[in-house]
Write a protein that binds this DNA or RNA. Structure first.
Length: 259
DNA sequence: ATGCCGGGTACGACCCGA
């Protein structure tokens, strides 16, 4: 099973690139973030034409997440529980059946949180608390659970080109890292770091020639329950996507699993 | 760099991202 996450930065602007990548790679399940589209405007027929079932959780202009799957969905969850007043579309989860039983794949677009002095930063921290509570419930099920997406979080100084540039940013500061560490301490494994110690950036800013300078950061992650980590065969960062025409500023990250 | 690019909305700028 090949499961991938990708922040595409707008489905309308990225449709040709996403379609070409799916045709080339044929992943089984893909989580997309920042579709920036209402559900009714998402080009689901394009993906259905490629053999995918499509579930979306969109909103106008900003955010929005989607799941594409060659397997049928047994169940779909839209939205992160814990705050009925939160209208930002940042989580969608599918449940699937394989020969070895059920598994869940959750696709998230974790809030950026900048600027730190604004209300956006406490929103990020509260969102991470809600996420950790959600994950606790999922872990209690003891089935393979893949939590993947744009976490807007740099796990360590080794995950960015220059820690001094990023330290203090909402993506790389103590309060954010503490919440991420809680997620790991609950029992969720960083799939990429389970396979390599090498740098593996997933985002390069459009500005400042970041791609040309390889001034990247690793903020797109697959976090695995023990039952998913036990079945992890490999991780691949689709770095070449950043060099395609009309690229997203993020690239896809894929995990391969034996289920 | 309180904004270099690029996407959104909407058609002229302004909001947003990381």
């Amino acid at each position: 099973m090949r499961i991938a996450t990708w922040n595409i930065n707008g489905i309308k602007a990225r449709l040709d690139v996403v379609k070409a990548w799916l045709e080339q790679e044929q992943p089984d399940i893909v989580g997309l973030q920042e579709i920036k589209s209402l559900d009714e405007n998402f080009p689901r027929e394009v993906f259905e034409g490629l053999g995918y079932n499509v579930e979306t959780h969109g909103q106008k202009s900003f955010n929005g997440v989607a799941l594409l799957s060659k397997l049928p969905f047994d169940e779909v969850v839209r939205g992160l529980p814990g705050d009925s007043a939160d209208e930002q579309a940042r989580l969608i989860e599918g449940t699937f059946s394989s020969e070895s039983g059920s598994f869940r794949v959750c696709c998230i677009y974790l809030p950026n949180g900048n600027p730190v002095e604004s209300e956006k930063f406490p929103y990020k921290l509260k969102w991470m608390d809600r996420l950790n509570a959600f994950v606790e419930d999922r872990l209690a099920e003891e089935i393979p659970f893949v939590l993947m997406g744009d976490f807007n979080l740099i796990p360590t100084g080794h995950d960015c080109h220059d820690p001094n540039v990023w330290w203090g940013d909402a993506l790389f500061r103590p309060e954010s890292l503490e919440k991420f560490r809680t997620l790991q301490n609950l029992g969720m494994t960083d799939a990429l770091r389970a396979t390599t110690d090498a740098p593996a950036y997933t985002f390069w800013d459009f500005q400042s020639g970041a791609w040309r300078r390889d001034a990247g950061i690793r903020i797109d992650h697959l976090m695995l329950s023990p039952e998913a980590a036990d079945r992890l065969d490999g991780v691949r960062v689709h770095r070449d996507l950043r060099g395609w025409d009309k690229p997203s500023d993020h690239v896809a990250v894929e995990g391969q699993f034996s289920f």
